[in-house]
Design a protein around this nucleic acid. Structure first.
Lengths: 209, 209
DNA sequence: GTCTATATCATGATAGAC
DNA sequence: GTCTATCATGATATAGAC
């Protein structure tokens, strides 16, 4: 129906996403967004009243994206190790597809976290559920005892940080060899899964019970 | 000698560090820096010709700080596990003292990595040395075999990311309970050391050989 | 070295024709 | 809805007095 009407709006959103993600809120220029969208500045203000509004639209879009459907995986009835593996696969897959999102999120959250607050509240995302599931698995003796928060932090850190710090990796670790960097990212999921399993699983030789 | 002469310059640098670290290059205002330093804008340009120059001064200062003397630890003649533990302690100690540095570094590196390039080259920092040492420890059977690059990435990720993503942790994990957050950071070094040892050390019951 | 005043310029935003 | 032209603001940077 309205798939025809909003071609301009769609072009604006795509251009804005592009510019905001690479330059950030402060660094982005309305002129550049207009150019990339093939229109002029006035039209930007016609569709989105201000730069602030346009940014919020993009930011919401991205944040929703960054919290993938972890809850579904967590709530499933599989053993904890299987859940953790699925979450790592889901995260890394997402990050390989959209490698610039972590940098953007962290940049903007350090600037003004209020946007995140609204969205997390709106989505009713409750990390306590995750911690409880981990605690349960520990009580059942599936994995070693450690702080569920720290375990969660460890896993997410290993997944996200290498993408957020892409320029450092690229230059310091790989001397700007982009192919080597891509290979590294592709290996990441497997490496993290193995690392976490080594660290926390108790009966490694008895996984089939 | 010139410890008296440069009090104004010192005040400027401190104010600039403050503003740049919290607001970033684009978000920082020369007016605010001048106010915080107790002088006026013109004087900023007298000491540092432009905003760009002033920023570079601060950025260099911070970057040097962020690469602590890891090389010394790596080169020492201790077992690999001991080295890793020392590095984790050094890193976390630094980050607890200066928790806003990671966010700043990542923000600016995603904007323009050229500053890093110059400094890394200047310092002659060579990560290959680290990878070689790890490889050697693997060949000697001290730790399991895995990619040295991935192992390094895992450790640094777990150290740095929770600080870089401070606003997310603070709100999502701790509902803005600052005390709980500080406690979490204080526990971090111990947790990471244990986690890494569990993941990679081969003869855990035989560490004294 | 430090100040006031001002030049210069870029940006977000709006008015108004079509 | 889309454009051109313009405004208003705020920023970096400089001139020049003291």
């Amino acid at each position: 129906m309205e798939t025809k009407k909003d071609t301009t709006e769609a072009k604006i959103l795509e251009a804005a996403r592009n510019v905001f993600v690479t330059k950030g809120m402060e660094g982005a220029r309305m002129q550049e967004i207009a150019d990339k969208a093939g229109i002029n500045k006035a039209l930007l203000h016609y569709y989105f009243r201000s730069k602030e509004r346009l940014f919020e639209a993009i930011f919401s879009e991205i944040i929703k994206f960054a919290f993938p459907e972890i809850t579904r995986i967590v709530r499933s009835d599989e053993p904890i190790v299987s859940k953790i593996e699925q979450i790592i696969d889901a995260y890394i897959g997402l990050l390989i597809k959209h490698p610039f999102i972590p940098g953007f999120i962290m940049k903007e959250l350090n600037r003004d976290p209020s946007g995140l607050f609204k969205l997390v509240v709106k989505f009713g995302l409750n990390p306590q559920v995750i911690f409880d599931h981990i605690q349960l698995a520990m009580d059942r003796g599936e994995i070693i005892r450690m702080s569920p928060r720290h375990l969660t932090a460890n896993i997410i850190s290993m997944c996200v940080f290498p993408f957020a710090a892409r320029p450092i990796l690229s230059f310091v670790m790989f001397k700007d060899d982009q192919n080597a960097l891509e290979t590294f990212y592709a290996e990441r999921a497997g490496v993290i899964k193995q690392f976490v399993i080594n660290a926390i699983v108790i009966n490694k030789q008895d996984e089939n019970n």
